[in-house]
Design a protein around this nucleic acid. Structure first.
Lengths: 151, 151
DNA sequence: AGCAAATACTTCAAGGCTGTTATATTCATG
DNA sequence: CATGAATATAACAGCCTTGAAGTATTTGCT
């Protein structure tokens, strides 16, 4: 009971810094590999991933809320995916404002391949985390972010 | 022993996604508060933090390796900090290529205030993570990123 | 001394991201 | 139908980030 003068808040800052550092380290490595080996980017992968999960495509605002990024951002990313013929914009019946973003067949295949590669990379980068501890880590992070406003 | 068909690699992907999601959630909130309440940004805070820790200022390349960002990047951030009078560039004796980046008095005070605020915010955002679990989380994340190439 | 390599830094292009503002379309209401 | 609110998207400015290319300066080698 001597030390522990570093209050809980300082310890939490340490934890946050560690989370951030870890995320950046891995993200940086993945970004680099996406760029040099797949000629793509993480944000593009995220968009394609969301589209792949949805059956009939997504509208712009659905994309931007699914990815939690701002609207103007999605426009630019989708622009580039359209250029690369991985994605297409379709009209929405009954609402001429909206448009549906869908993966093209090429987009589907490309995404499937990228997803496989991505899984291998993550497995490699987290290889030192024993499989038995993964669950524990997930639990702690869940704790950290769950708002307990189920009052 | 029935399930567990989801191979370890898929679990690691889940862990990675969770790390990323957590980091982004908190980072987004902090960025937003830095912008609206302190009229600053996370990268600027990082630079000032590194300068504050160093006794006599840092050279540009020291900054960029401390923060693990590219050189061209630091130039831009320091430019803006200089404009805001939070930081100054000093000549280095004996090496006219280099320059020492130092916090101004205003920079010191501003950083101290921002650091206090930052600590409160992090403590608030991670409030649901019991203080007793923080150490465990740090350990797991250390495990995840430590390369064991001490062969 | 002279000259090439290494070092310190800046500049630039491209992309990603945000928040704000503008434009087009739809919908509800009088 | 006209008006105004709400919604969907685009356009814009600003910052951060990277990687590559360019400028100065220093250092090391001959």
């Amino acid at each position: 009971m001597t030390a522990a003068v570093t209050t809980a808040s300082k310890e939490r800052v340490r934890a946050w810094l560690k989370i951030l550092k870890t995320a950046r380290l891995i993200e940086k490595e993945l970004r680099e590999r996406f760029r040099s080996e797949l000629d793509s980017t993480l944000p593009r992968f995220d968009v394609m991933s969301a589209l792949d999960r949805s059956e009939h495509g997504l509208k712009m605002h659905e994309l931007s809320s699914a990815l939690r990024v701002s609207g103007g951002n999605v426009t630019g990313i989708v622009d580039r995916l359209v250029e690369a013929d991985l994605v297409e914009r379709r009209a929405v019946e009954g609402d001429r404002r909206a448009q549906l973003i869908c993966l093209t067949p090429l987009g589907h295949n490309t995404f499937a391949e990228h997803a496989r590669t991505h899984e291998c990379w993550v497995d490699e980068l987290l290889a030192n985390l024993p499989a038995t501890e993964v669950g524990q880590l997930l639990e702690l992070l869940d704790l950290a972010t769950h708002k307990d406003d189920q009052s």
